[in-house]
Design a protein around this nucleic acid. Structure first.
Length: 341
DNA sequence: AACCGAAGCAACCGCCCACGA
DNA sequence: ATCGTGGGCGGTTGCTTCGGT
């Protein structure tokens, strides 16, 4: 049974925005005597507010160590990375961002970061590629998101490599899904191996709406994404033949299998893995081993919320791909069961 | 200039847990 | 063991600001 709100029964207690006068009363009192019991504080400080409101105002806005202003790119990346590990444990995330409050981070996530991930084809809850029907039509949005993700960097044409890699991960997934779709609909000639043909195939399979042939509408150099796709071995596509869909399906199934296994994709890219500098695109010749993330003692502070403290591989947008069972989503005629209407 | 919808953000709500009596 | 209280947390609301028409 939850207890009743602390302000229940306190008729006449003021709600809504705080005035500068109220702020001053609160700050002066706490700086002189400390907050002590929040419930008793309003009366002692001469405030017509409930204690809970005072606590929130102090912890979120009046504390002297609060950092205001825009989140930096590094902070954004850190939030995304921590969210992939901790979920909506905003207070835990806030402990890693000095001067930022859980409320501020939560708001920023809901209003900015969540939308960015969605635009990149990444589920903001699971941090994995989205598998809903918007995926195949999502490349234009992906590119749009790519154009906006880098903040000041993208505005100057300097690509954020970590963001690009994340986007490339999603792009690879979409490419493969489009490939499966194309081969299984048998309406498109089977391609010769190679990325260029794969791209063309995807465009054809998607009714020419893939956005990859939009002439750089969003200022995205297609070759950059291609290089990213090749970065971890995407270039080593299995040979595709002109055979019937069943045969193609076999090959693609193998692609998915190899994709999920030790492909070196790592969301620690988000955590500052230096893949490139400046605006030059560099491609890791050998993807680094996926690091283990130690969820150490701070994972104990959630009051039994259930965060595992075991060592777990750092999550990636592609982590768990092998468990997506994409082939299970295909009907015998090659159409998607749920992804396509 | 006025209107309207979207986005952003401060603040509130209600549930939960820890802890002490 | 039970209950009441204090405080923390995530989710939601509603006001304000912004941008497009």
């Amino acid at each position: 049974m939850g207890r009743s709100p602390c302000c229940d029964g306190e008729a006449g207690v003021k709600k809504g925005p705080w005035t500068p006068e109220e702020d001053k009363l609160l700050v002066d009192y706490i700086q002189e005597k400390g907050h002590g019991s929040w419930r008793r504080l309003p009366k002692l400080a001469g405030l017509n507010r409930c204690g809970k409101s005072c606590r929130l105002r102090w912890t979120n806005y009046l504390r002297p160590d609060i950092k205001r202003g825009r989140f930096t790119d590094d902070e954004e990346k850190l939030i995304i990375h921590l969210h992939s590990l901790l979920g909506n444990k905003w207070s835990s995330i806030a402990t890693k961002l000095p001067g930022r409050t859980d409320n501020e981070i939560k708001n920023y996530w809901n209003t900015h970061l969540r939308k960015k991930l969605l635009g990149m084809g990444i589920d903001p809850v699971t941090h994995r590629p989205r598998t809903d029907l918007s995926l195949l039509a999502g490349l234009p949005g992906l590119l749009a998101a790519a154009g906006s993700f880098g903040g000041a960097g993208s505005a100057t044409g300097a690509w954020d490599m970590n963001a690009l890699r994340l986007q490339a991960d999603a792009a690879k997934f979409q490419l493969l899904q489009g490939l499966v779709r194309a081969l299984t609909t048998a309406a498109v000639p089977a391609p010769a191996p190679g990325m260029d043909n794969l791209m063309a195939l995807l465009a054809a399979s998607n009714g020419g709406q893939s956005g990859m042939n939009n002439g750089g509408q969003h200022g995205v150099d297609q070759s950059m994404l291609l290089q990213q796709c090749q970065w971890d071995g995407m270039n080593n596509l299995p040979a595709l033949t002109n055979s019937a869909p069943a045969s193609g399906m076999h090959n693609i199934s193998g692609m998915f299998d190899s994709f999920g296994a030790g492909d070196g994709l790592s969301s620690t890219e988000l955590g500052g893995h230096g893949g490139a500098s400046g605006s030059n695109v560099t491609v890791d010749a050998v993807a680094p081993p996926r690091p283990m993330v130690a969820n150490d003692q701070e994972c104990n502070n959630n009051g039994g919320g259930g965060v595992s403290c075991e060592q777990t591989p750092a999550s990636s947008p592609f982590d768990g791909l092998e468990s997506l069972n994409l082939m299970d989503d295909l009907n015998t005629d090659g159409s998607w069961k749920d992804l396509l209407e």
